[in-house]
Simulated scan of single mutants.
Amino acid sequence: MAVTRFGSLAARAPVPIFAAIGPGRQADVERLLARRGLRRAHSPRDAAVLLVSGDLPDDMLEALSRVHAQLPHPRATVRWIDETADEIADRLRDAWHDLCAGVTDEEDRLPDVPPNEWKGVGPHGQGGEGMMGGTPYGRSMAMTGPDIRDGLQLDRYTARIGPFAPMLPPGLVLEVTLQGDVICDATVANAAFAQPAGADAPELCAGRVVRLLGLEAAADRLIEGKRPGAVWLRGAVPSGLGLAEGTEARGRLGAWLAGEVVTVAPVDLPDFLEGAEWSEAALLLASLPPSAIIRATRPTEVA
């Protein structure tokens, strides 16, 4: 009885959703998740429902399975292909109610094994190879290199981020080498998914930046076409950040808040991101309209 009562109370909360967004669906999903009663999860660990929107390329299915594995039990997957936004919103709420009632749960899709085999590997069996090699306890070791700012020898760690990381455009995979939280090298490992022109809508572009500033409610209000309810949003973006074609991130946000469409030529993403702290890099990417990022990563295609 206590579990049933608890589940009934939980079902009244907004549906915690992590979205895996496919080609052509960015604007649809962003507008959907701004609705009352739905909540955009900050990470898969914060979600109960995985929303898979659009047809994903086959080479993205393994990454999707890794995202699914990060959702805690109980969990559910809802696929959005042809339904209206109202219909998919109802399905998301139904899935959440079933989870809260203990009716459903999804099993793991991937085997429960570490990404790097390490047990019994190396002279001590912990996956390491001497002082600096191998993958001790399954984690790659950071190797030293000169700091890009002052030349001091600091640890460098290389990781791939994407294609469904919420702070990156859908489909984009970045391979970044970090010293602390500073990007000293970046490579585009997979291009951003093509999106329709509607993804450049001023309210959506402003919402992406404002959300990264930690103002979730203000971002949702912007996407819904309302006043954000926060004072001097433009001033929350540092001056001089993200210079591109004579405009900077703060100026672009100001234009979007005024309802203006911003056009930016493709930038050299590795050069654009190098030297930025990771939080700045996410803000830099959000300060560019999707069309600019798509053209930068897919130079022969039209967004």
Rank of each mutant, 00 (worst) to 15 (best):
E83Q: 14
A20M: 05
S43L: 02
A276Q: 10
D108Q: 10
S53R: 09
L92Q: 04
P146A: 07
L32W: 02
A194N: 09
F164Q: 00
A191R: 05
R39Q: 14
S140Q: 10
D112K: 14
M141R: 14
A13R: 12
G275R: 08
R31P: 00
P72S: 04
P289S: 00
L110H: 08
H68L: 07
V173S: 01
L288G: 00
L288E: 02
P72W: 08
A258G: 15
E274A: 13
V188E: 05
E87D: 12
D220C: 14
G22C: 04
H68C: 04
V67T: 13
P202G: 09
G7R: 11
A217Q: 15
V49G: 07
E248N: 15
I81Q: 12
A197N: 07
P202I: 07
M132W: 13
R35D: 07
Q70M: 12
N190H: 14
T77W: 05
L38G: 02
M143H: 15
A201W: 07
W232E: 15
I294V: 07
R93I: 11
A165P: 00
W232H: 15
E280H: 14
V182K: 07
S65I: 01
A63V: 00
T177K: 04
V67N: 03
Y157A: 10
A194E: 11
Q195W: 05
A218L: 10
R40I: 00
L285S: 00
S140H: 11
R298W: 01
I161Y: 09
V67W: 08
G125L: 12
A159F: 11
R295G: 00
P228S: 06
A192R: 01
A296Q: 03
M132K: 13
P111S: 07
L50A: 09
V121L: 11
L168D: 03
I81N: 12
G133H: 08
G254D: 02
G162Y: 06
R208T: 10
